[in-house]
Amino acid sequence: MLSLTTNSELKNALLEAKTIAVVGVSNNPVRASYFVVRYLHYRGYKVIPVNPAYAGQKLFGATVLASLSDIPRETKVDIVDIFRRADFVPDIVDEAIEHLLPGLKTIWMQFGIWHEEAAAKARSHGIQTVENRCPKIEYQRLFGELRKAGINTGIVSSKLPEWN
């Protein structure tokens, strides 16, 4: 399995996904771990918020769970997005491998987070990995939104864009 880096790999991962579990979610509106979740929800993803500190509370209509292992077996999670420090990543990856396979396609580590061993372990179990990127910013970059603000999206293409 792949470490996703190219535009088309990242785009496919975001397009294929329907459900995203966000580990380390916050209920503070000015934190990225809040407004990224809000944005993904707004974009139509089913978001499963995870944080033991807020377990049982509601966030964007979903109940906050204490851990990935609390996600019901029948729920198919496509992406796990990690908002925790790198030293927590191996345990989260182990939990995802244990509880979310088969079904889990991508483990995504946020800005400033990467853990090469844990990522390699995930890939050896058939899970794609993304490190040090934000799915909200990648979505905005790849699907035309950031272009509207003059952001350098790095996208060069002669094809008709699929967004409007």
């Binding site: 809000r38 944005y39 939104e145 272009r147 509207k148 603000a149 952001i151 350098n152 790095g154």
Partner: peptide, 30 residues
Amino acid sequence: KEVGYIYSRLTNPTVSALQERIATLEDGIG
């Protein structure tokens, strides 16, 4: 909370395209 076109004093599709082009050539982020 979302980036988009409201009013051309702020953003306009033609101007945004130029902004991205200059940012690209200068190796800037925006």
